[in-house]
Measured scan of single mutants.
Amino acid sequence: VEVSPDIYQQVRDELKRASVSQAVFARVAFNRTQGLLSEILRKEEDPRTASQSLLVNLRAMQNFLNLPEVERDRIYQ
């Protein structure tokens, strides 16, 4: 799965849209901590040159964001 270069903005938009914390998003989207998500968003590494471990996390976030909005909102509950 190709990771979109605007994945970082997509995540920020989703945090605002759903009014969820980084901690909640990190847990449900890719089963990691708020600290890691914060670092990923701060660095904004180009997905095309990202490490394998970062790509795994970015893909998981993208797959989560590809779910229908209704389903994502249900998962946040």
Rank of each mutant, 00 (worst) to 15 (best):
V1N: 04
V1Q: 12
E2I: 15
E2A: 06
E2Y: 14
E2F: 15
E2W: 12
E2M: 15
E2S: 11
E2V: 15
V3S: 06
V3W: 03
V3I: 15
V3Q: 04
V3A: 04
S4C: 10
S4L: 08
P5K: 12
P5F: 07
P5R: 10
P5H: 07
P5S: 12
P5W: 06
P5L: 08
P5D: 07
D6G: 11
I7M: 09
I7N: 06
I7Q: 03
I7V: 05
Y8H: 04
Y8T: 01
Y8N: 01
Y8P: 01
Y8R: 02
Y8I: 02
Q9G: 13
Q9P: 05
Q10I: 09
Q10F: 13
Q10M: 14
Q10S: 12
Q10W: 06
Q10V: 06
V11C: 03
V11T: 09
V11L: 09
V11N: 00
R12Q: 03
R12G: 03
R12V: 06
R12L: 03
D13Q: 15
D13C: 03
D13H: 13
D13P: 02
D13E: 15
E14P: 00
E14T: 01
E14W: 00
E14S: 01
E14F: 01
E14R: 01
L15I: 15
L15Y: 02
L15E: 03
K16T: 08
K16Q: 13
K16V: 11
K16L: 15
K16Y: 14
K16W: 04
R17G: 01
R17K: 05
R17P: 01
R17H: 00
R17A: 00
R17M: 00
A18P: 07
A18I: 15
A18L: 04
A18W: 03
A18R: 10
A18S: 15
A18Y: 05
A18G: 14
A18K: 15
A18C: 15
S19C: 15
S19K: 14
S19Q: 15
S19H: 14
V20N: 00
V20W: 03
V20E: 03
V20T: 04
V20D: 01
S21N: 12
S21I: 03
S21A: 03
S21T: 07
S21V: 04
Q22G: 10
Q22R: 11
Q22L: 12
A23C: 13
A23R: 11
A23T: 12
A23K: 15
A23G: 14
A23Y: 11
A23E: 15
V24M: 08
V24G: 04
V24I: 15
V24K: 02
F25V: 00
F25Y: 03
F25K: 00
A26Q: 13
A26E: 13
A26Y: 01
A26D: 08
A26G: 06
A26T: 04
A26I: 02
R27W: 08
R27P: 03
R27Y: 06
R27K: 15
R27C: 10
R27G: 06
A29T: 13
A29R: 00
A29C: 13
F30G: 07
F30L: 09
N31L: 06
N31T: 07
N31H: 09
N31M: 06
N31Q: 09
N31V: 05
R32P: 04
R32Q: 13
R32L: 06
R32D: 14
R32N: 10
R32W: 08
T33S: 13
T33R: 09
T33H: 14
T33K: 05
T33G: 12
T33D: 10
T33P: 07
T33F: 05
Q34K: 08
Q34L: 07
G35N: 15
G35C: 11
G35A: 11
G35D: 12
G35I: 11
L36H: 13
L36I: 10
L36D: 15
L36V: 05
L37C: 06
L37V: 05
L37F: 06
L37D: 05
L37Q: 02
S38I: 09
S38C: 08
S38W: 06
E39P: 02
I40E: 02
I40V: 05
I40G: 02
L41V: 04
L41A: 02
L41K: 00
L41Q: 03
L41H: 00
L41Y: 03
R42A: 13
R42N: 10
R42G: 10
R42V: 07
R42M: 12
R42C: 07
R42S: 11
R42I: 07
K43R: 12
K43M: 12
K43D: 14
E44S: 11
E44C: 09
E44L: 05
E44Q: 12
E44G: 11
E45G: 05
E45Y: 07
E45C: 09
E45K: 08
E45P: 10
D46G: 05
D46Y: 04
P47A: 05
P47Q: 03
P47V: 12
P47H: 05
P47N: 02
R48H: 13
R48I: 11
R48Y: 08
R48L: 12
R48P: 05
R48T: 09
R48E: 14
T49C: 14
T49Q: 12
T49A: 08
T49Y: 15
A50P: 04
A50C: 11
A50E: 04
A50M: 05
A50V: 10
A50L: 05
A50D: 03
A50N: 03
S51E: 10
S51W: 02
S51F: 02
S51M: 04
S51A: 09
Q52A: 11
Q52F: 05
Q52M: 08
Q52T: 12
S53T: 13
L54P: 00
L54H: 06
L54R: 12
L55I: 09
L55M: 13
L55P: 03
L55C: 07
L55Y: 11
V56D: 10
V56R: 10
V56M: 09
N57R: 07
N57H: 14
N57G: 06
N57T: 09
N57S: 11
N57W: 07
N57P: 06
L58E: 00
L58F: 02
L58T: 02
L58M: 05
L58H: 00
R59W: 05
R59V: 13
R59A: 09
R59P: 01
R59Y: 06
R59F: 05
R59E: 12
R59M: 12
A60K: 13
A60S: 11
M61L: 12
M61W: 01
M61F: 05
M61D: 02
M61V: 10
M61C: 11
Q62P: 02
Q62T: 11
Q62H: 09
Q62M: 07
Q62S: 11
Q62R: 12
Q62A: 12
Q62E: 08
N63W: 04
N63D: 07
N63Y: 10
N63G: 11
N63V: 09
N63Q: 10
F64L: 05
F64C: 00
F64T: 02
F64M: 03
F64A: 00
L65M: 13
L65F: 03
N66L: 14
N66I: 05
N66Y: 08
L67D: 00
L67Q: 12
L67M: 14
P68A: 08
P68R: 11
P68N: 04
P68G: 09
P68Q: 12
E69G: 08
E69T: 11
V70D: 15
V70I: 11
V70Q: 14
V70G: 13
V70A: 12
E71R: 07
E71Y: 04
E71S: 10
E71I: 04
R72L: 00
R72W: 01
R72M: 00
R72H: 01
D73W: 03
D73K: 03
D73C: 04
D73S: 05
D73Y: 04
R74F: 09
R74Q: 10
R74G: 11
R74H: 07
R74D: 13
I75K: 13
I75C: 10
I75P: 01
I75M: 14
I75T: 08
I75F: 13
Y76G: 01
Y76K: 00
Y76F: 05
Y76V: 00
Y76D: 00
Y76R: 01
Q77V: 07
Q77Y: 15
